[in-house]
Structure formats: C-alpha cells, structure tokens
Design a protein around this nucleic acid. Structure first.
Lengths: 226, 226
DNA sequence: ACCTGAACACCGTTCAAGT
DNA sequence: ACCTGAACACCGTTCAAGT
C-alpha cells in the first residue's frame, strides 16, 4: 500500500536510463549488494521488470553504470583542489576521493575490483598518470607507476568493501576490529609470529591514515631514484 | 550416460569436505565462476544437492575453502626458495606465488578481493610481514608495509581476474590487449592525454614484469629512508 | 550419522501483447 | 517507441524421508 502510493506519485516522469541508474544506486546503498534485483528495482520505478531492459542491456551493465556514476561524481567533487598543490598532494587527493566513495558506497569496492580498466577507472588512471608525469618520472616508467597506484587503490577498496560486508550486519566497525585483533592475538605463536605481533596495530589503526601511508610508500618508491 | 558411468565408478569413496572442495575447484577451473552450482557439483559427486550441506555450511564457505586450498598449495610450493635469498627476493617470490595462482585459477582473484584478511590471506600476510621485519623496518611501520604489499597484490589479482573474464570467451590475451590499446589510442586527446600516451605500454607490457615492478616500487618506498 | 531428491522461495532474462 | 507482466530456465537452501 505504501508502494501503491509511491507508484501513483512517481509515474509522471517517464523511465530513462538515468532514473534507472539512480534508483539502482539508492537500492544498493540501502539494501546492499544483494538488494539490487530487477524486481525490487522495477517496483521502486513503478513498472515491470521487463521495462528496464529497454534502457539497459542487463545487470552487468547496470552495475557498471552505477559504479561509473558514483566514481565520476566523487572525482568532480574532489579533483579540483588547490591549484598550487604538489603532484604528491594531487595524487593523495585523487586516491582519497576513490577511498571515500567506496567508504560511502561499499558495493563499488567489489564492483571496481572486478571491472577491467574501463570506464569508471579510466578517469582515475588518467588523473594519476598526469601527476606521475608531473613528478618527473621518465616516460618508460610512467605506465608502471600509475598502474601500481591504481592497483593499490583497488586492493584497498576491495578489502574495505569486504570488511564492511563482514561487520555491517553484526555491529560497529570498532567491535569488528576488536574481534579481529583478538583473533590475531590468539593465533599460533610460531606459525603466526608476525601477525600476532601487529594485532594491536590492526585494532588501533585508522583506515584513512593507513591508506595514505600506503600511497606514500609507493610515491616514495616512484621518486626514490631521481 | 557418461554421467551414469562416472556415478557408478565414483561412488566407492564416501563424500567428504575434502572431496567436495576438490570437485568445486575442478568445476571453477573448467566452467568458470558461474559454473560452480550445487546441482552441477552434486552431479559430479554423484549425489543430491542436499548432501553437500552436511559437510559445508553453504556456498560462501565453499568458495572460501576452495580459494584457501589453492593459495595454501601455491605457497607451500613456492615459499621454500633458496635459504640465502634477500628479504626483497623472498617478498617477490611470495608475491609471484599468489600472482601465478590467480593466473592459473582466475576465479580466486575475485574471491580473494572480497575476502577480508582471513584464512587464505593470513598466511600471505604473515610471510610478507616476516620479510618486512627482516628488512629492518621499525616496528611501528611494519603493519603498514605488509598491508600495502598485500593490498597491492590483491588489487592486481582482481584486475587480472577481471581481464581474464573479459577476454576468455572472445579470444587470446594478445588480441584482448591489442583491442584495449587501440581503444586507449582512440580516446579524446585532451581529456585522456596521458592514457593515450601510454597505450603502447599497455599493448606491449608483460603482466608478470609489470607486477614485480609495482612490488619493487613499494619495496623502494619501504626501504627509502633507512 | 549420513545421504536423497522433491519442494520452496527466489533469481535474471525473454517475449507476446498492449498503448 | 516504449511499457507490461506472465512465463522460462535457472539458482541456493531446506527438510521430510530414507539407510
């Protein structure tokens, strides 16, 4: 009956690819990765599931378009930055933009990790590459440097999405890290000597700080032999 | 009828978690990520789909166990190495072990990217951390260094899996890169100046070499300020 | 204790039929 | 041209019933 009312209100505007993608993002944000269903989506759009196929070829394309829209939005928001920023700062800002987008929409972490370097990621790659070039990296090494940065960002994104999936149903992030750190501390002292030893760091670390520290390691390697 | 024969032959050994995981790996390798189905799996094991649930709690656990088995196998194969290797070499060997495992079984790339730092990855993390420590990294920075390496490895793994998915149905890897490079070269000259410029590197690069170059960038950053 | 396989509650996608 | 919604061919998972 709630859906009946919404149905009546909503149906002024016609269906469009844009409205479908928008509704898909809302669904993914509220109901998670498993919540995006052509049935749920069509109900929200007050239509039948088949109608969606007129504007979108299938679920894969829809997921890609949704991730694309979010990443594009996050880049135009953060990419500006101060004009006198160093290339390092510009790279950090770019990376944080993707990081924060994944933090706000965990499902794109999974999505980007399974997307080949196509549409949504290409803009990020381009942005990273320009700054790599601005760092004075020789031409032959630019592809490697930009790729390394992007791959690292994607790896963290996937991990973050996995962690969000792991703790969101159960409780807070702090509890989750507490539990994970306790599990690390209880590992076999011989077989997992190192992991046990850094369990406290797992518990106390700040995701953003840690992420940027990793970026800085790569930046350090890129600029090491100048 | 082929399945009838197999059914008759196979059914001497009883069902076990180990046999189920083994069959799941075989199915994933031959039929891809979409090929792992409880129905297909139960047919291969000459039983009903319900029987599998006696040994395994569900599909998620099965996928995790399959990835775990492959990674564990690949680590015991490659982790030995020469005893006098430098920490850098040991890290490269470890990283290449995971890389090659993903190359041989692309589905674990997707799987690992969505696994939080649990079972299969914990052994990799431990191995990386020990070598980080052997590099003389101060205690407070060890967690960051090992995490950065692992996240980079996972990012590349996810990308490789995505690429394998993208080109396997159509044709060879070379053709795929050729097409992708051509697409890059045809991008807008203003908006994608950098990406266009490195299109040739995309076409000619060697995945393993590029992967190791990224590892070396991070290693460079880790050891830069010693 | 372990296995069987029918049944349940879903999916993504297609397609004849409507406007 | 665009939408509708029933129907198809699947899924993962459960569970009464068997041995």
């Amino acid at each position: 009956m709630a859906s009946r009312t919404r149905r009546a209100e909503r149906r002024e505007e016609p269906l469009s690819r844009e409205r479908i993608v928008e509704a898909a993002i809302a669904l993914l944000d509220t109901a998670g990765e498993g919540g995006l269903t052509f049935r749920a989506l069509s109900e929200r759009l007050a239509t039948g599931p088949g109608a969606i196929y007129w504007h979108v070829t299938g679920k894969d394309e829809l997921l890609l378009a949704a991730a694309d829209a979010v990443v594009t939005g996050s880049m135009s928001a953060g990419a500006a930055g101060p004009a006198d920023a160093t290339p390092q700062d510009a790279i950090r800002a770019l990376a944080l933009g993707v990081f924060d987008a994944i933090d706000a929409h965990p499902w794109i972490g999974t999505q980007l990790a399974r997307t080949p370097a196509q549409s949504p990621l290409l803009r990020v790659f381009e942005g990273l590459g320009r700054q790599v070039r601005a760092l004075g990296v020789p031409h032959a090494a630019q592809f490697t440097a930009a790729s390394a940065l992007l791959n690292y960002i994607l790896g963290v994104g996937g991990q973050n999405a996995a962690n969000a999936r792991a703790h969101h149903p159960a409780g807070s992030r702090t509890e989750f890290l507490e539990t994970a750190a306790a599990a690390w501390a209880a590992l076999d002292p011989e077989e997992y000597a190192f992991t046990r030893d850094v369990a406290a760091q797992l518990r106390d670390h700040d995701d953003r700080v840690e992420f940027l520290a990793g970026i800085d390691l790569i930046l350090g390697g890129i600029t090491a032999d100048r």
